[in-house]
């Protein structure tokens, strides 16, 4: 296992669409282990996508377990993930390992259904909401060459605030 260097904007690799994983082999699992080690080495990251370490495959790791106030599925390795249903929209603050020292408000779906494969090719299906759903959308964007800065609506205004905590 090894921590890989995280590519930062404006590295062109971050703008490329990642290719689907076809072989669910030991090489895949080794690369996933490196990806996870890289995520854990970063500053409190709750997710990472393969293109962030220059690996152009459709693999993300998310782990929203550090936010127990939101329902979450813990650590997930998602291979060839696909969001198959969305609902609602909510603004939240995002930053990125690949865009250091910058955060902004981004509109994301509030709830979603996601299909993917695990590291051995087994099918997965999750219903996600809130913080975990945001993390999944942020990471899957990386697979399509998108960064959160492509979606920032404002740094200063909660333009579409929906959730009100009184």
């Amino acid at each position: 296992m090894a921590v890989r260097p995280v590519l930062t904007f404006p590295d062109e690799s971050l703008k490329r669409t990642a290719e689907p994983v076809e072989a669910f082999d030991d090489a895949l699992r080794r690369a996933v282990a490196d990806l996870e080690e890289t995520m854990r080495a970063g500053p409190a990251a709750v997710g990472i996508a393969a293109p962030q370490v220059g690996w152009g495959r459709r693999v993300v790791i998310i782990d929203a377990s550090a936010r127990p106030q939101w329902p979450n599925h813990g650590r997930l390795v998602l291979v060839n993930p696909e969001i198959v249903a969305w609902e609602g929209s909510v603004v939240g603050r995002e930053g990125c390992l690949s865009v250091p020292d910058y955060t902004g408000n981004v509109v994301r779906a509030e709830r979603l259904t996601l299909e993917a494969f695990d590291e051995r090719g087994g099918p997965l299906r999750y219903e996600m909401e809130g913080f975990e759903a945001r993390v999944a959308q942020h990471e899957i964007d990386h697979l399509n060459g998108l960064l959160f800065i492509d979606r920032v609506v404002s740094r200063r205004k909660d333009l579409f605030r929906r959730k009100v905590y009184r």
Binding site: G42, G92, V164, Y165, R166
Partner: peptide
């Protein structure tokens, strides 16, 4: 007046 916690996601 309403309040929203801001929980910044780093991913």
């Amino acid at each position: 007046a309403s309040l929203t916690p801001i929980d910044t996601l780093i991913g």
